[in-house]
């Protein structure tokens, strides 16, 4: 577990800068508008379940506003919180790539909106706007790679 956010030695007055990677940080606003043009725009209400663990769907989501939580179940059936999902987060990109069942259930903690990009949207994007589609895939791959690195680091901390 990483507790660095509680020991932000350099700047105790502030939450540490989020270490989470930024998806397509270089993409301009008009580029983003274009990308969102391929997406489906959904609204959600507090308490709504947006993704169900075990479900299969090839899509990922960008949370425009609102808060959600990702919960998983242990083998004994005990539910535990995996992560809190704040606005502007990306969720579901793993299943987007591998098509395997969702590993967590995502529930809305507040009302909000999100954008959904599925395999079909990416297919259309790659035919119409190959550069954008390439950037989307490459950057998602970068993010997954960072996460793998993080796991490796963590593994090193655990097994040393």
């Amino acid at each position: 577990m990483d507790f660095t956010s509680f020991f932000n030695y350099e700047n105790p007055d502030r939450e540490p800068e989020s270490a989470s990677p930024v998806f397509l940080a270089q993409l301009s606003e008009s580029g983003w508008s274009k990308l969102l043009g391929y997406a489906q725009h959904r609204r959600f209400a507090q308490g709504e379940t947006l993704l169900e663990a075990g479900e299969q769907s090839r899509d990922f989501y960008i949370v425009a506003n609102g808060r959600l939580e990702a919960v998983a179940r242990t083998e004994q059936g005990k539910e535990f919180l995996l992560s809190a999902i704040e606005e502007h987060s990306i969720i579901g990109e793993q299943s987007f790539f591998d098509g395997l069942p969702r590993s967590a259930t995502v529930r809305a903690l507040s009302d909000g909106e999100l954008f959904r990009i599925d395999a079909k949207a990416l297919e259309v994007m790659s035919a119409r706007d190959p550069a954008l589609a390439r950037d989307v895939v490459a950057d998602l791959a970068r993010i997954l790679s960072l996460r793998l690195r993080e796991m490796t680091q963590r593994l090193l901390r655990i097994v040393r």
Binding site: M1, D2, F3, T4, S5, F6, S18, A19, S20, P21, V22, F23, L24, A25, L27, S28, E29, S30, G31, W32, S33, L35, L36, H41, I62, A64, N65, E69, L81, L82, S83, A84, I85, E86, H88, S89, I90, I91, E93, E113, F115, L140, I143, R147, E150
Partner: peptide, 23 residues
């Protein structure tokens, strides 16, 4: 734990602006 749990990727300000516009 939720605060320090694995944080997903985020989008930047350009995206936020574009999403507000789309909304």
């Amino acid at each position: 734990i939720q605060k320090t749990a694995q944080q997903g990727a985020r989008v930047g300000e350009n995206a936020a602006q574009a999403m507000r516009r789309a909304s």
